[in-house]
Structure formats: structure tokens, C-alpha cells
């Protein structure tokens, strides 16, 4: 298990009812963490339509997580 921080934006923040939380997780990748959190908070968007950033840099869903990482979950974008 590692300790990480999750941050939520827009629809994810409203759905989770918080913008940030500290977690202890067995997830080893960003994708596994999304699956865990989507189940817990009811995120309904498929990973392929969402983005993830780790420590303020966009990252691949397959990225490995390290203790202390801050993982940012972005729902589908809609600029313009």
C-alpha cells in the first residue's frame, strides 16, 4: 500500500463532493487508481475519455504511482 493524494476537477469534484483526498491504495498505476476511485465515487466516464496528471504533468494511464504522488483526475474536456 502507498499513500497518495487524489485531486478532482469539475464533474469529478462535484460527484466526489471534495476536491482533494489522501488515500492509502494498493493501486500500482494511475489506471488502477482511477478504477478504484470511480467505483467509490461513482465516476461514470470511461478512462479513454478522461485524462490524468501526476504531480502537475499530464501522464499516461499506465504510469506507475510512487508514494507521495499527487494524482489529478480530469473528466472529459469541453473547452470552446
Amino acid at each position: 500500500m502507498i499513500e497518495v493524494t487524489a485531486r478532482y476537477f469539475a464533474a469529478f469534484r462535484e460527484r466526489a463532493g471534495r476536491d482533494v483526498e489522501s488515500l492509502s491504495t494498493a493501486a500500482s498505476t494511475a489506471a488502477e487508481l482511477y478504477d478504484e476511485l470511480a467505483g467509490r465515487h461513482g465516476f461514470a466516464d470511461s478512462m479513454g475519455r478522461c485524462k490524468v496528471a501526476i504531480n502537475d504533468e499530464l501522464a499516461d494511464w499506465s504510469s506507475t504511482l510512487a508514494a507521495g504522488d499527487e494524482v489529478l483526475f480530469f473528466p472529459p474536456v469541453a473547452g470552446g
Binding site: 476537477f9 469539475a10 464533474a11 469529478f12 462535484e14 460527484r15 461513482g42 465516476f43 461514470a44 466516464d45 470511461s46 475519455r49 485524462k51 496528471a53 480530469f74 473528466p75 472529459p76 474536456v77 469541453a78 473547452g79 470552446g80
Partner: peptide, 20 residues
Amino acid sequence: PIWKKEHYRDGHSGWVNCAT
């Protein structure tokens, strides 16, 4: 990463493109 929330005349609102 820009998100758009629409507010509708009938009082509800929603995030565009999002199933969540």
C-alpha cells in the same frame, strides 16, 4: 483541460461531454 458547466432555463445544470 477546460470544463464547461451549462445552466439551463428549467433550473438544472450539467457538465458538457461528461457522463459523471
